[in-house]
């Protein structure tokens, strides 16, 4: 068994330790004796998603957004849309998450059209939503609690064909208003949580790996690992965030 991972746009979507998710995916495969291969697909490089089992897209800075949009037009957007309907397993964080939606309208009225693979859109807000987060992951995404750190000013709204990834327990989530966090569509999982998300949420990491491997190999049972250190970090965060009133602080920009 081998898991082939695509790290899309590691050159521009690499904010806030998002690369830690790749490290986590690879190590948890290695510790189980499963081979893995990560291919970094930067701007300008060709993308063939049929070659992969799992796609990761991180978050980025606004500065580089235009470079990215230009590159998506040259075939990558079509490739991503096709792979999603082909049930590829994908994890997209923050900017990568927004990019899968239809558009992002910034606070000062600029509109960026995205690839429209998922029925959702983002509107900029003057407030930045920053802080530690705790979510209750929906059963269709593996269940359990998730902990992370969010930092975004875009507010994302889900259309009717997309489900949230989780319910907000602490923090702002998608928009700070409707109590949803992230998105789930077919085998695509999206979140605003950096953290990075996977190392402190090993259950969710394994759920993604299982989804990715099951698609290629029919079924995939992952052997249990000793997650005491991960669980300790996860639980410490939950204790801390839930003991602080209003941990997701808003900051005027």
């Amino acid at each position: 068994m081998k898991c082939r991972i695509c790290h899309l746009y590691p050159d521009v979507l690499n904010l806030y330790g998002d690369g830690g998710n790749i490290i986590c995916l690879q190590q948890r495969l290695r510790w189980r004796g499963i081979e893995s291969e990560v291919q970094r697909v930067p701007i300008g490089a060709p993308l063939r998603l049929a070659d992969f089992d799992l796609v990761f897209i991180g978050g980025g800075q606004d500065f580089e957004q235009e470079v990215l949009l230009e590159d998506l037009k040259h075939g990558k957007a079509d490739e991503i849309r096709a792979a999603i309907s082909d049930d590829i397993c994908m994890l997209a964080i923050c900017g990568g998450y927004q990019m899968l939606g239809s558009y992002h309208e910034t606070h000062d009225g600029k509109r960026f059209d995205f690839i429209g693979a998922l029925d959702l859109y983002t509107r900029g807000s003057p407030d930045r939503m920053i802080g530690n987060t705790v979510y209750e992951c929906l059963p269709a995404c593996g269940g359990g609690t998730l902990v992370g750190f969010e930092n975004h000013s875009g507010k994302t709204w889900l259309g009717s064909s997309v489900e949230p990834l989780a319910k907000v327990i602490a923090g702002s989530g998608n928009n700070g208003e409707d109590g949803t966090e992230g998105a789930h569509y077919r085998n695509v999982f999206c979140s605003y949580s950096h953290g990075p998300l996977l190392p402190k949420n090993p259950g969710f990491c394994d759920y993604l790996l299982q989804t990715a491997l099951a698609r290629r190999y029919g079924s995939a049972e992952l052997a249990p690992l000793d997650d005491a250190a991960e669980k300790a970090a996860h639980d410490a965060m939950i204790r801390r965030v839930t003991s602080q009133a209003g941990s997701g602080r808003h900051k005027k920009k």
């Binding site: 690499n14 806030y16 330790g17 690369g19 830690g20 920053i130 750190f149 950096h194 953290g195 190392p199």
Partner: peptide
């Protein structure tokens, strides 16, 4: 810095 994500970079 209240965000410790940087340790992964």
């Amino acid at each position: 810095g209240t965000d410790v994500s940087w340790i992964w970079d």
